[in-house]
């Protein structure tokens, strides 16, 4: 028994090292690449506080918070997607299923078009809108319990209605819609320490909570009747875990806008790699989501430099390509 545990410990710490090394390489690449490249030696000096000037501004003020934010946003979306797929027992569920992204988008579009609020309140507007959208979906679906099909239908309805209003507003405001379009595509342009401070602690809390509930998530895969027979209150867990997914996603919408596909594709990819067991699936999905987001963000700000593309463009492209690969792999 002790030997088995030792083997398991070695294996886990081995994977931990791989994750750390991969993350380190990606973070360094993200700090180094951009319109003005920064050498790795200069990055190290900046991080040690031994260098000022342009390198410091590039690395410390712009790229480091943005990279950390990318890691968090990716992990949040991937874990939220994994949660939603487990809660609804539907492999096509995504973090946006609860209407949280559509609600956030609607709130931001309306606020930016018809109010004179400063840009700094946008994250809060998105957060409130996202939570309201999710509350509307869950409220519509609620009938004394939370049936996955009802939740999916209610989420689609709320998303469609919000999308219709957003389109109407964009048409109405006309030429000033460019800025809104860019926000709607999602991205980390101009995000820095304030946004990281806004969601850093709560994101980590949400991610840790999801990991803590890995056993309940595993049980939920067994079907309502068996789960109930094992003594779990099915709808309470389903509601609580859906709320946790909303909590994680709303934070993404607040700082980066509605970013699609990460939360849908990454859980699938992770499932192909490690199977259905949430004890492995959740950490692997979080890691892959974080990495994908950083890669997409680096691509978004380097491919057409000095201009910048919305990161949502890349996550959608990578996500679409990933899904095509899935179709062929599984021969659906």
């Amino acid at each position: 028994m002790a030997a088995e545990q030792a083997v398991a410990w070695v294996r886990w710490s081995g994977w931990g090292l791989v994750v750390l090394a991969g993350s380190l390489v990606l973070v360094l690449a993200s700090l180094s690449l951009g319109v003005v490249p920064v050498a790795v030696s200069a990055i190290v000096e900046v991080l040690l506080g031994e260098q000022g000037g342009l390198s410091r501004i590039l690395v410390w003020e712009l790229r480091l918070p943005r990279t950390l934010l990318g890691l968090l946003v990716g992990a949040n979306l991937a874990v939220a997607g994994t949660l939603m797929q487990a809660v609804t027992r539907n492999p096509l569920a995504s973090p946006s299923l609860t209407g949280v992204m559509a609600g956030g988008a609607l709130a931001v579009v309306v606020a930016m078009s018809y109010s004179s609020w400063p840009v700094t309140v946008t994250p809060y507007v998105a957060l409130v809108g996202g939570l309201a959208g999710a509350a509307a979906s869950i409220g519509l679906a609620w009938n004394g319990q939370l049936a996955p099909v009802r939740l999916a239908l209610a989420g689609v309805a709320v998303t469609a209605l919000c999308g219709a209003v957003v389109t109407a507003v964009l048409l109405n405001v006309g030429s000033s819609a460019d800025e809104l379009f860019f926000w709607m595509a999602g991205g980390l342009l101009g995000r820095s320490w304030p946004q990281l401070e806004l969601i850093g602690a709560t994101s980590l809390l949400g991610l840790l909570l999801a990991l803590a509930f890995r056993r309940q998530l595993n049980l939920l895969s067994l079907g309502d009747e068996v789960v109930r027979s094992l003594g779990m209150r099915v709808w309470r867990w389903r509601l609580g875990l859906a709320a946790l997914a909303v909590f994680l996603t709303a934070q993404v919408v607040a700082v980066a806008g509605p970013i699609g596909f990460v939360g849908l594709v990454i859980p699938h990819l992770a499932r192909i790699l490690v199977g259905d067991d949430q004890r492995r699936l959740l950490p692997v999905a979080a890691c892959l989501g974080a990495w994908l987001m950083v890669v997409a963000d680096v691509a978004a700000r380097t491919l057409v430099a000095p201009a910048e593309l919305p990161v949502g463009l890349f996550t959608a492209t990578l996500g679409g390509a990933g899904f095509i690969a899935l179709i062929y792999r599984q021969r659906l």
Partner: peptide, 13 residues
């Protein structure tokens, strides 16, 4: 304990 008519579980379990 109740064993329903159509219990479901992930195939890879």
């Amino acid at each position: 304990a109740l064993l329903p008519q159509h219990p479901v579980a992930p195939e890879g379990l």
